Amino acid sequence: MPWLLLVGAIVAEVTGTISLRYSEGFTRLVPSAITVIGYGAAFWLLAQVLKSGMNIGVAYGVWAAVGVSLVALIGALFLGDGLTWIQIGGIGLVIAGVMALELGAAH
């Protein structure tokens, strides 16, 4: 159950971040509202994950790493942002770091 909540937190955070791009500095109502709701839901869900007993380093690491990776990929694939090989390597390193946190927490 905590992992399902964590997935929900990631989806909410990514949705909020993508909407932030379209909010034009919080001057457009709908994207601004989606941003606020998305971030609020993300933090509430992350709090529930922590309440369930998941290690904070693992929970936050996975949340942040998967979120930033998804936002970068969505930006590159659908929003016209560039993504260099160095950035792709950086995403790989972030994911490897989170995997190290997870593996280390298992012991």
Rank of each mutant, 00 (worst) to 15 (best):
T84F: 01
G16A: 05
V30Q: 14
G92R: 11
Y39D: 09
G97D: 07
G97L: 04
G8C: 06
Q87R: 12
I18C: 01
V66D: 00
W44V: 14
G40N: 13
L73T: 02
S52D: 13
G67K: 00
G40Y: 13
Y39E: 02
F26V: 08
E102Y: 08
L50V: 07
L20S: 06
S23I: 09
F43M: 09
T35I: 09
G25Y: 04
G16I: 02
G8D: 08
G16D: 05
L77P: 00
L83M: 13
Y60N: 03
S69C: 13
V14D: 05
L20F: 06
G67W: 01
W63F: 14
G80P: 01
Q87F: 03
G67I: 00
L20N: 08
Q87C: 01
T15W: 03
V62S: 03
L103T: 08
I18M: 07
R28N: 10
G16Q: 08
S52L: 08
I86H: 00
S19H: 03
T84W: 01
G89R: 05
G75I: 01
I86R: 03
S23A: 14
I74K: 00
L103K: 14
L77E: 03
I88M: 06
V66H: 05
G89S: 03
L50G: 05
W3F: 15
A33D: 11
A59C: 12
G8F: 09
Y39L: 10
L83F: 10
I18F: 01
I56R: 14
E102C: 12
A96C: 10
